[in-house]
Each structure stands twice: as C-alpha cells, then as structure tokens.
Simulated scan of single mutants.
Amino acid sequence: MKSHNLATEPPTRVPQFTIRLSSTRRGARLARRLAGQQLAAWGIPYDSETSQALALVTAELASNAITHGHCPGRDFRLTLLLLPEHGVARVEVTDTRPERALCDPAAEPVPPDAPSGRGLLLVAEYAERWGWMVRDAYTKTVWAEVQWSA
C-alpha cells in the first residue's frame, strides 16, 4: 500500500543513524553513500535491492532538500531507521523550508519535455509509503519507507 502526506512517528527504540550534512551537491552525494554504508552496518548487504532502493530514495530526497528546501547557511538532516517489526528501512530528510509543501506527483503530472520534476515519482515507485510532516516553524521532514526482508 503506497501513501503520502501522512504524519507518522517511528517507534523510539529502533536502530537509528542521524547526521547533519551541508545543503550542497556534495552533501546530497554523501547522504546517498552513508545510507548504503549504514544499512550494511545493520546487516543489509550493500548490493541488496533494499540498499539500492533506499540509496536511490535518499539521493532524491537529499537532492530535493538542497534544491527546494535550502536556506543559506542551513544544513539538512539525514535520519535512517531500521524498523524490523514493520519490515521497512526508513529514511527521513529534514530541510529548512517548511512553507514549501510537496505536490502529489500522481495528481500533478510533469510534462514529458520538462527537464526535471520526476523525482517524487521515483520515490513513490521504490517506497512502500512516503510522506512529509511539518513539526515546527523552521523545518519540514520528508520520509520514505523501503521494504526490507531479513
């Protein structure tokens, strides 16, 4: 079941990795690499479908954070969680532009000749569920859950 625009809270006692990264292309690339490395540290092989899917989703969410959610001098935050009881690995990317809500890619199709705008379609395809939440006046978190099997 795929969904979006749901504000869900992950359980508190799960394997978690969090890091602040610069809102630059280098920071976005690092987010993707760290996602794969962290999953490997948790026992999910680097070349597995789960790892590759989560790396792709992380890259897209980080890219969106630096392109659309960036304020000068402000970093973005990457959080990875392993939720074995739900069978998913979850990525959260928090940026500094809460006023920039996300559009539903299925509701607002991108013209075929547009140079960009298809990233959330990739997220929707690879993620079991995804969405976003605004917790305060300063940040927005976009999250996605990728199916994981032991």
Rank of each mutant, 00 (worst) to 15 (best):
S3R: 09
L6M: 14
T8I: 15
E9C: 08
P10I: 05
T12A: 14
R13D: 15
P15Y: 10
Q16C: 06
A28W: 05
R29D: 09
R33I: 14
A35K: 00
Q37S: 13
A40M: 05
A40S: 13
A41H: 11
W42L: 12
W42M: 06
G43F: 05
E49C: 02
T50F: 06
S51N: 08
Q52C: 00
A53M: 03
A53H: 05
L54H: 04
A55V: 09
V57A: 02
A59N: 13
E60S: 08
E60R: 06
E60Y: 07
L61E: 01
A62C: 08
A62V: 09
T67M: 11
T67L: 11
H70R: 15
H70F: 12
D75S: 15
D75K: 08
F76R: 11
R77G: 09
L78H: 01
L78K: 00
L81S: 12
L81P: 04
E85H: 10
G87P: 01
A89K: 01
A89C: 15
R90V: 09
R90L: 06
V91R: 00
V93Y: 00
V93E: 02
V93T: 04
T96Y: 00
T96E: 10
P98F: 10
P98L: 11
P98A: 13
R100C: 05
R100K: 12
L102F: 06
P105V: 02
P105N: 03
P105H: 01
A106L: 09
P109D: 07
P109I: 03
V110D: 02
V110S: 04
P111S: 13
D113N: 13
A114H: 15
S116N: 04
G117Q: 09
G119L: 04
L122V: 15
A124H: 10
A124R: 14
E125W: 02
Y126I: 08
Y126R: 15
Y126L: 15
A127T: 02
R129H: 13
D136Y: 10
Y138M: 11
T139R: 14
T141G: 02
V142W: 00
V142L: 07
V146L: 07
S149R: 13
